[in-house]
């Protein structure tokens, strides 16, 4: 019998309200609905999340690792783009 692999979905989980969804891995599933159930069963077994997104892996357009130098290295020397020249008040927790 021929065996077709289920398509791949990328899984994003928000660990609690106020934080953003973070990529945690991927699952195989025949459709988005079951991808969501599979993601729940594979990635939230230990109370990791309050919300799940699944996205068909082939819907993602990724940057080319070969272009890493031209894409990212020019930014390394632009230290003035980092907010390190300000004093952050203690009350500000997340920046």
């Amino acid at each position: 019998m021929s065996r077709k692999e289920w398509p791949l979905y990328e899984v994003f989980i928000r660990s609690r309200n106020g934080l953003n969804h973070i990529h945690v891995g991927s699952v195989h599933a025949p459709d988005p609905k079951m991808a969501l159930e599979n993601a729940r069963d594979a990635y939230t077994r230990r109370g990791e999340g309050v919300s799940i997104w699944v996205v068909a892996s082939n819907a993602i357009t990724a940057s080319d690792p070969g272009e890493k130098e031209s894409l990212f290295e020019p930014l390394a020397e632009k230290v003035y783009r980092h907010p390190t020249f300000y004093d952050i008040p203690d009350e500000v927790k997340n920046i």
């Binding site: 289920w6 195989h28 599933a29 599979n38 069963d41 594979a42």
Partner: peptide
Amino acid sequence: PELEEDMA
């Protein structure tokens, strides 16, 4: 039938 269903 599938790894994912195994876990489910």
